[in-house]
Amino acid sequence: MTVWALARKVAYDWRWLLVLTALVLAIYELIWGKITDRIYRQFMPLVNELLALAQLTPWAIKALEKRFLEGPGQIIHTLLGGDLVNLNDPATVLTIGYVHPFVQFVLCLWGVGRGAAALAGEIDRGTMELLLAQPISRRQIVYAHLLAEAWTLPILAGAMVLGTALGVWGFALPNVVLSGYVIAASNALALALAVGGITMVFSAMGQSLWKVAGGVLLLLLVMFLVNLFGQLWPVLQPYRPATLFFYYQPQLHILQNAWWLSLPDFSYRLCPPLVLSVIGLVGYLLAAEIFHRRDIPAPL
């Protein structure tokens, strides 16, 4: 009952931010439906027509594409899904809405914000003192936040799928299998959970919301860059599995419509949402143990 009471309050405190974040994600996916429609129905027919008029051979088109994707173009190409995206196929273009850095940023921001505010933020605000004066254990406080995430994260994932479904329906996009997007959204949910779990570990040790949030965001930025450049430079490739973003594979989930994936350049199969969920849960458990053992400083 104590955990339930605290989880309810956490959900109450975050209700407006939850609604706002869910709306942002849903609208963003809806907008990607519109972008896909424009590319599929207006931009690509024009490009194809121009290529036909120019009478270019397939080899020349490939060389042109290669030239176009050199340098910064290659980074953008990798960021948006690389060779998985075929601009003539709306089903693949729509997947960019799930892998786009903006979506990853919003999911990370949610996880970092929730985790940093949960413990370090309460200590920072001085309300942890009040909370811990009640008969509630420190582990229960961490578990109450995990319980709150069990309500809030499915809402965010649901908002993404809803936005996509509205886009597919509203713009009559062909060849889109929505069940793949449900798996991709669960991967997004698991990413936010993993980020939240890692942040909770730092939050359990810290006492300043902004220091914890800043430190974790910096760590996530490093992970993001290692994962991104690991796809371009072979020297960084072995480090990719050490980053959270390696396990964020919504495009493969959508295109393969499967939970277990075979990843390019890697010999093993894995279920990214499972890996991220385990990381998140281990983070919460570790945070509970750290928080259970530490001193609670007096409010400044």
């Binding site: 104590t2 003192e129 009040l130 909370l131 008969p135 409010p299």
Partner: peptide
């Protein structure tokens, strides 16, 4: 009663007391 008093500013007094009561079961 803490010396440095910090309460949940987003709650009303009634919500605050109800929350603490629930924590006490």
């Amino acid at each position: 009663l803490p010396g440095e008093l910090r309460l949940y500013e987003n709650l009303t007094g009634r919500q605050f007391l109800e929350f603490l009561a629930r924590l006490r079961g």
